[in-house]
């Protein structure tokens, strides 16, 4: 039955099938890129997936290469910026140090200008202490006019006395050293025949003050200038405690104003008349 139907209608079926095939061909050309020829369209349809794959593959590798180059460039930039940042940090630290040094030196120059004696600026390059014996080392010596037993001051007050001198360096026995003795007086009472002896830990003891002398806590203690090491009126400290139990002389503890552990620059006082230092 099917064979008979095919014999009767094979021409019609073939005709419809071929017409439909041609119609598909025509509509394909209309719908897909009408400005291309059919062979171009067919080639495009066949090869576009391959072309797309090849493009994606090459694009992948190109992107990888570009990413690698970009990464290397970024790493180089990163390294350069890290170096720059490190340099800037060092520069900033240096600037801060210079600012601090500038402030200290300015303050010290004001002290030097207000002081009647000439002075030599020196930097503290070392410090040593054994028990209460405190020593500072400075970068100026006999070649700079420094001699033994010169007075040393800072912006905050008296520092100490030059103890040993070499051509380029000198040792300073600080005012809190028990071996130091500086002629001093109490600013309020004006008793000038006393001397300050170091007592360690930023403290000193005012000796040779008679019991009748009027001394109060917080009175200022300044240099009397009688020892020839310091001009008169250099700040030593303030009275911390007064012991009135002793019969002839008072025991006066003094809080020194100089922070010896924080000293960086000092002024070495030269006698007004050269060679006049004791």
């Amino acid at each position: 039955m099917a064979l008979g139907f095919w014999r009767r209608s094979s021409g019609g079926v073939t005709f419809v099938a071929l017409e439909f095939a041609c119609f598909l061909l025509v509509t394909y050309q209309i719908q897909v890129a009408p400005h291309l020829s059919l062979l171009e369209k067919m080639a495009l349809t066949l090869f576009s997936p391959i072309q797309h794959l090849a493009y994606e593959t090459s694009d992948y590798f190109v992107m990888r290469m570009e990413n690698r180059k970009s990464m290397e460039a970024l790493q180089a930039d990163n390294q350069r910026m890290a170096d720059q940042l490190q340099y800037m940090k060092q520069f900033e630290t240096r600037i801060a140090e210079l600012e601090s040094e500038n402030a200290r030196l300015t303050e010290l120059m004001q002290v030097a200008a207000s002081n009647p004696w000439t002075s030599v600026l020196a930097s503290v390059i070392g410090r040593a202490s054994k028990g209460d014996d405190a020593i500072l080392i400075i970068d100026k010596g006999s070649r700079h006019g420094i001699t033994r037993d010169m007075g040393v001051i800072a912006a905050s007050g008296v520092v100490g006395i030059v103890w040993e001198v070499s051509p380029f360096y000198a040792k300073i026995m600080t005012a809190n050293n028990p071996g130091t003795a500086i002629a001093a007086m109490i600013q309020r009472s004006r008793y000038a025949d006393a001397y300050l002896v170091g007592h360690g830990e930023n403290k000193g003891r005012l000796e040779n003050v008679p019991g009748f002398t009027s001394v109060n806590v917080a009175d200022r203690v300044v240099t009397s200038g009688l020892d020839g090491l310091f001009p008169k009126g250099q700040l030593l400290g303030t009275v911390l405690h007064v012991n009135t139990n002793s019969q002839m002389f008072l025991e006066i503890d003094v809080q020194l104003t100089t922070e010896f552990a924080a000293l960086e620059e000092v002024l070495i006082l030269l006698p007004t008349i050269p060679g006049d230092a004791p």
Partner: peptide, 14 residues
């Protein structure tokens, strides 16, 4: 357009 004339010619042949 390819196939357009083929549709007509096949119809005429049929």
């Amino acid at each position: 357009v390819k196939g357009l004339s083929a549709m007509i010619q096949m119809a005429l042949v049929y």
